[in-house]
Structure formats: C-alpha cells, structure tokens
C-alpha cells in the first residue's frame, strides 16, 4: 500500500473525508511598518504533518493564523486554498499553546464546545463520541471534572480531544506542547502523532527535536522578510524514536541552521 492510500483509509476511519493538501500563495504580512514576509508560498501535503521551525518573531504564528483565517484585520493577505480549489478556513481545527479550555465547563463540556457554539444539539451520539475521544486521550473517568482540577498535560489532552471532536481534515497547531514538562511533552507528541495521522497538519514549534519526531517534512522559516527554505524530509515515518542516530545527526544540523537564522534584526513578538 502506498502512503497516500494508507492516509485515505485512516481518514475514512476517522470520518473526516480525504485530507486535502493546502496551498498558501503570495502570503504577505506587514507589521508596525515592516514587511515580515512577502510573496511567501507554502504547500502542506494532504494527510501529512508539516513542521515549521524558526526564530521567534519571524512570523510563524502569523502565517498559521493567516491559514486559519484569523488574521484578516491585521495587515496580512494571501490565498489559502485546498487542492480542490476551495478555501480551507472552514475545514481546520486549531490547537494553541494555551489549552483554551473554558474553566466553567467540564471536560466533556469543553470537548463538545464546537457543537454548543454552532448551536448544534448535543445528541447522545455526539456525547458518546466525545466520551470515546476522552478515553482515547487517556482521560476516561474524568469527563465531569473542571479544567482547574487537571494538570497542564491533562488539560492539553482535553484540548486535543476537543480538536479531534471537530472532525476537521486540517489541523493547525501553534506550539501546543511547549508549556509542558519534557516527559509530558514526549507522551503527548506520541499521542498527537497517533491521533492526527490521517490529517493535514501544520505544527509550528520551537523545538527541533519535536519537529524531527513528528514531521513528515520539516521547514525552516527565517530572515527578514522571512523565507521558507527547502523542506527537510527525515527518514522513516513519524512518530520517530528520538534516540535514532540519523535523527540526532539531523538535530545537530537543524540546531546549527536555526542558530544561524537567529541573528536577524527587527523581530516581532
């Protein structure tokens, strides 16, 4: 079976349909009178995870927000289309660095939040699927707890379940694990790789090892205005073992490239 077919089978199992590839063309962002990036093109291959690395302030988050359709009021523009020629902003789910759980809702309430906000009824079938997802992220039995009673890792697991509940074929993640301790992060990376495998994923991260573990392709965004360099394609399929000598060699290489990229004037936060 070719990788594409595997992804399609998995996508069908998840009920999300075929995960489209996403094409970003001529993206531009002006911020405080500066061009952060201009005529930036980027393709996220369907059903694969693309990791985006780069120094802070280079515009990674802005690019992600542009793809999510969240940046329209700022000085940003660009075309974001799926390979079917339709916009993708209604096909994405968004996972941020903060879990963004609502403190007054239970775990279950947070997972089905999308249904509430769209005014869709929470049928027994919907609730049942939410429970299944909560169990899949390892929180069975905690459905009734409020977020304040959960640890940071557990909260991000709930956020992951909420993301999966949305059944969106494209998932945009902005440093979702960066606030967690090393062990929790390690566990959650494996969980996310497993649960998101059929989807088109863009993962913005600061952590080169995370990118090498999870990405089918790893991109570096650097410079002012920022460019995206040719993708690095690590061997094997994610999630990769972080102890693999090939991965460690790539890690050393990535670290060198990232520290070279850091000496850039004019950063934004």
């Amino acid at each position: 079976m070719s990788p594409q077919t595997t992804a399609e089978t998995a996508a069908a199992r998840e009920g999300i349909g075929r995960a489209p590839s996403v094409h970003i063309q001529a993206a531009r962002l002006d911020y405080a009178g500066m061009v952060v990036f201009d005529s930036l093109d980027l393709t996220l291959p369907g059903g694969e995870t693309t990791c985006l690395l780069g120094p802070s302030g280079v515009g990674k988050t802005s690019l992600l927000r542009l793809i999510a359709g969240l940046n329209d009021s700022a000085g940003s523009r660009g075309t974001v289309l799926g390979d079917d020629g339709r916009p993708v902003h209604d096909r994405i789910a968004y996972l941020a660095q903060q879990d963004l759980l609502l403190p007054w809702l239970s775990v279950l309430g947070n997972v089905v939040l999308g249904y509430r906000l769209r005014g869709q009824p929470i049928t027994p079938a919907v609730a049942e699927r939410a429970r299944t997802l909560i169990a899949r992220v390892g929180l069975a039995g905690r459905e009734g707890d409020r977020p304040a009673r959960l640890s940071g890792g557990m909260r991000q697991r709930v956020a992951l379940a909420r993301t999966l509940m949305e059944e969106r074929p494209v998932v945009l993640m902005d440093e979702p694990f960066s606030a967690l301790d090393a062990i929790t992060r390690f566990e959650l990376q494996a969980l996310a790789a497993e649960l998101l495998q059929a989807r088109t994923v863009l993962l913005v991260t600061h952590d080169p090892l995370e990118a090498l573990r999870l990405g089918h392709r790893v991109l570096i965004m650097a410079g002012a205005p920022a460019r995206i360099e040719a993708p690095l394609i690590p061997p094997g399929s994610p999630p990769r073992a972080p102890g693999d000598p090939a991965i460690l060699r790539l890690l050393a290489d990535l670290l060198a490239r990232l520290s070279a990229a850091r000496s850039v004037p004019g950063e934004i936060s």
Partner: peptide, 12 residues
C-alpha cells in the same frame, strides 16, 4: 484565544 477558537469552530 477563546474567540479565535470560536471562530475556527464556526461559532454563531
């Protein structure tokens, strides 16, 4: 962040 989340979810 909550409002962003609501927008990506297609909230009314």
């Amino acid at each position: 962040g909550w409002l962003d989340l609501a927008r990506t979810m297609g909230g009314r």
